[in-house]
């Protein structure tokens, strides 16, 4: 079983991102379980969402304590919360950032990939310049980095479930897939 944790801020769409990714993985034959952190959510406050992925029906219904990979929708969260809490060694940290992975020096035992999801979102008119909606773009990066799900399935999942600016959202994911920056010494894993 693979466990993913999303870090975002209330209103950024981390919960929706987890569910979209779940639908994409399910379409490719995986068992999935997607849920938010069970608390009171406020706009702008740090929030989490979770995703379990397995080849068999998922019986475990607890919080995720030791994620295999994390997705960070807002790089300022790295300063605000311990995003790597419980993250398994060698786990991927997929960050929305315009910096290169090498610039994040504090994550020695993990692997870092970055994508400028904010820029991609703004270029695709998703949200506003001050509040870009990055949750679909970041999923493209997840597909590229982990190889667990195809970018086609991610785009399809977005097309089926996102009611507004559907094509723009799907395009953002595909662009992010192409523009994801992996560390120079690493290569994407095979799915």
């Amino acid at each position: 079983m693979i466990e993913i944790r999303f870090h975002g801020r209330g209103g950024q769409g981390a919960v929706v991102a987890s569910k979209l990714l779940a639908s994409a993985l399910f379409a490719e034959g995986k068992s999935v379980q997607s849920f938010p952190s069970f608390g009171v959510e406020r706009r702008g406050a740090p929030v989490m969402a979770f995703l379990r992925i397995d080849n068999h029906p998922i019986k475990l219904r607890t919080n995720v304590y030791n994620p295999d990979h994390i997705i960070v929708l807002d790089a300022t969260l790295v300063e605000a919360v311990d995003v790597t809490s419980g993250l398994k060694p060698k786990g991927w940290i997929i960050l929305n950032s315009d910096h290169s992975p090498e610039e994040f020096t504090g994550f020695a035992s993990f692997r870092v990939a970055t994508v400028d999801a904010t820029k991609i979102a703004v270029e695709n008119h998703l949200g506003s310049r001050t509040h870009p909606i990055v949750n679909t773009a970041i999923l493209g990066a997840f597909s590229k980095v982990t190889g667990l799900v195809s970018i086609e399935a991610v785009a399809q999942s977005i097309r089926e479930a996102v009611p507004a600016k559907t094509e723009e959202n799907a395009r953002a994911a595909v662009e992010a897939y192409d523009k994801t920056v992996l560390p120079s010494n690493d290569h994407p894993t095979e799915g």
Binding site: V32, Q33, S34, F35, P36, F38, I58
Partner: peptide, 11 residues
């Protein structure tokens, strides 16, 4: 169950 089912998405 609240959250564990109500807000958890699964096939």
């Amino acid at each position: 169950d609240a959250f564990v089912l109500s807000h958890t998405a699964e096939p």
